[in-house]
Write a protein that binds this DNA or RNA. Sequence first.
DNA 1: TATTGTGAAGTGGTTCACAGCT
DNA 2: AGCTGTGAACCACTTCACAATA
Lengths: 208, 208
Amino acid sequence: MKHVAPSTVRRLSLYLHTLEACLREGRRTVSSKVLGDAGGATPAQVRKDLSFFGSFGRRGVGYPAAELAAHLRGILGLGGGFRVVLVGAGRLGQALAHFEGFGERGFRIAAVYDADATKVGTRVDGLVVRGVDRLVADLEAQPADIGVIGVPGDAAQAVGDALVRGGVRAILSFAPVHVAVPEGVAVKRVDLSQELDTLAFALRGGSR
Amino acid sequence: MKHVAPSTVRRLSLYLHTLEACLREGRRTVSSKVLGDAGGATPAQVRKDLSFFGSFGRRGVGYPAAELAAHLRGILGLGGGFRVVLVGAGRLGQALAHFEGFGERGFRIAAVYDADATKVGTRVDGLVVRGVDRLVADLEAQPADIGVIGVPGDAAQAVGDALVRGGVRAILSFAPVHVAVPEGVAVKRVDLSQELDTLAFALRGGSR
DNA sequence: TATTGTGAAGTGGTTCACAGCT
DNA sequence: AGCTGTGAACCACTTCACAATA
């Protein structure tokens, strides 16, 4: 497979959700225009993105919704039943533990960790919180695919290192710092600080 | 001012945080290399980004940390003392209410709203939760700059409409749907679903 | 020597426009 | 007629390379 642009992958995710919404409404076929409007993409962009992976539509008609959704799930690699470990059982961690998006994708939160001894042993969404010191050993005994970092910035790199040592290949980090990882490990950073800064800039009337 | 690329704005935010970290370490001057390494940008990129707004560095030396930080805060429009209203007092809303990033930028959470009658009247981070039905009237009485949407997807557009009617000019949405707004209103969407999809794709070995 | 500031070149993603099906 | 698939044109962001300066 050739190089897929990160922006294309993000849009595929959007298309998939739009398709699911269309299916719920009983729609059988969807055009590139409908698919694009729901997420701020042009029809041409939709067609280009999809054509990268094959020809899924029928000229003059549109895309078969259920079929395309299945294709997209396959392309994105959903349904892999990935195991997730969540580090950080604070307010953010608790909100994440209850996020339904994991289950919707067949991701399973396998364990929750925290450094705070007063949190260890408590339950978060049915899971007993374990001490971070056990993280690497646990992962070596039973590997996970995805690690979620929900700890303060000053602890984030150490947690990232532990996840990598434990063999995790994808990390979702909410810490407002850069987490360095070796080649082959993917890191997605969700940084509220940065979002607020860009909003402030938008309020100044700087850009779009 | 000319067109500023969105990616540039995001990086300015990174540079600012790196500068603040350097200042805490007692550093007086910072090079484009140091500034870039902390956030995954090249030195050339840092210089290009900054040169867009002026000449802040000294050749052979680097950038004066405190001075550049002040410039960046000005460029981003921080310190404007923006008023923020938070809609959604669930787990996500509570986590957001306690997020220190608002205060660090001089943003002030002015009020918290929820549709759930059992939540109305309870306190979140010292603020009494109010009913969403009051949102527009409250905003008309006392305007806010930023609205945060922390409600389920099916309620997001209605909340967005209310925020816009109330005169809010920037919205940070955590709902997994596209929120349509009129020209002149900025929306930043933080979509966990999308991030998870891109991580799944990364695990397949699809892209970087 | 170290490092900035910046025009110019390069790269990659987006938009266009139209041929090709249904 | 309607809508997809796609090469080509376009545009924007990134990287390069080097003159300028402390």
